[in-house]
Write a protein that binds this DNA or RNA. Structure first.
Lengths: 235, 235
DNA sequence: CACATCCCATGATTTGAATCATAGTTTCAA
DNA sequence: TTGAAACTATGATTCAAATCATGGGATGTG
């Protein structure tokens, strides 16, 4: 799983005083499943750490379209893309399951960065890593064909939330077909067709909305194999 | 123009000693037009500042396909996406015109960041800004139709290198049709057709490879108007 | 200066994926 | 428990953009 454990960076690289101060000043909030944690266009007032739960982070394009950038779960951070400048939040964070977060006031987080040089340095490295990941993902979405993009969406689902403890094929949390389409930049009809194809190829198994990934290697092979990406062949 | 003047950040937020040390340890190199400055897969040994010139930054997908992420010109930085971890460079930087760069050894740049907390803080903010821009661009590429993407590519060309000093409609440097296609994630044939349409609509004028942007507002209007983006309507 | 290589341009054809249409299934709240 | 809303599913049709084909013009280099 991706290194995005910002709470760990705080523990490792901030002075004890600051960790104590943070614990005092942070507000923990519970969100019910299917509720919005922070919304696109909000003024940026907090940096948010996910204590416990599953969150999707997306951007609306119009009333019927959204594009999911990533998921966040225990230990991961939301809102750091809004740092600096007088920006409003560019994304919406939505609780997929019941979720507990810690809101760190932005001014406090800024002071934390300024007062703890080593934390600031590592947080900077974390942003560089995010930038790499983000551009890698962009490249994938733009260059790959439908099958590949759906395969990537399944992989992202698996990477973000892992597999069931009792069943190492079953996703611990299966996102909806519609959310797969929002991840893969396509329509839900196309997702359903593609998943159906994958099932016929014994790559996955569908049981209602749940997905079992039977052959992860084959899934990765689909992502790697771009010989069928006709759309990509800009000469 | 976008704030990406990292050399200015160094001047503003690093101590005098460090600025002097940098001036000693930096190697200036000249690159001819059409030569490669740094290449995808190279070990990351430097952070590179563009002193003077025009550079395209792209990623190869296969032998016939590339995707241009951005351009860099005077004062801007290349290679910061490789910070942290044992990564190789994810992008290639290519000199469009004769270009002079300053290579800062990576170890020195890291020391600079660690020794100048305020610079590190501002550099972190710069990365946050880049992350926002990058994801905005991703959203555009994925959601918009051909006309819009070509319009965005023209706008990026104008934003990156500006207009001619004597002719405020003419681009100071017109990138090739093929590079427009690499920016807009399409084929060069489609770019040529779309530019031809734009010309018929009196939006631009084509004189050989040079492009004059006659109606910038209309160009922006095309980018804003997503009512024709059929591909985007994932319900 | 010639010859090759790259770039620009346009028409005809194909095709991957979106859209339209229709219907069964889960889920959850009144 | 029932009815509505949301999700899953599949077939038919349409369409935007890629691919294929072909030629002209510019550029540059031995």
């Amino acid at each position: 799983m991706k290194f995005n454990q910002v709470d760990q960076l705080i523990k490792d690289f901030c002075s004890e005083d600051w960790v104590l101060l943070l614990n005092e000043r942070v507000t923990e909030v519970n969100y019910k499943a299917k509720s919005i944690i922070v919304s696109e266009g909000d003024p940026i007032e907090h940096i948010t750490l996910v204590k416990q739960g599953k969150v999707k982070i997306y951007c609306s394009y119009d009333e019927s379209t959204e594009r999911i950038y990533r998921f966040a779960t225990n230990g991961q951070v939301i809102g750091h893309r809004g740092l600096g400048g007088n920006h409003t939040l560019p994304i919406t964070a939505y609780a997929l399951t019941d979720t507990t977060v810690a809101h760190i006031p932005l001014s406090l987080f800024n002071s934390l960065l300024k007062a703890n040089a080593l934390f600031c340095y590592h947080f900077m490295l974390f942003l560089a890593e995010e930038l790499r990941e983000s551009e890698k993902h962009m490249k994938e979405l733009v260059n790959m064909n439908l099958r590949q993009r759906v395969a990537i969406a399944l992989k992202m689902n698996a990477d973000a939330f892992g597999f069931d403890k009792e069943d190492d094929k079953k996703l611990a949390y299966t996102i909806s077909r519609k959310d797969i389409s929002h991840l893969a930049a396509t329509t839900y009809e196309s997702v359903i067709r593609t998943l159906s194809d994958f099932q016929k190829e014994k790559l996955i198994a569908l049981v209602n909305k749940e997905i079992r990934i039977l052959d992860f290697h084959q899934l990765l092979a689909i992502i790697e194999n771009n010989t069928h990406s006709l759309a990509a062949m800009a000469k």
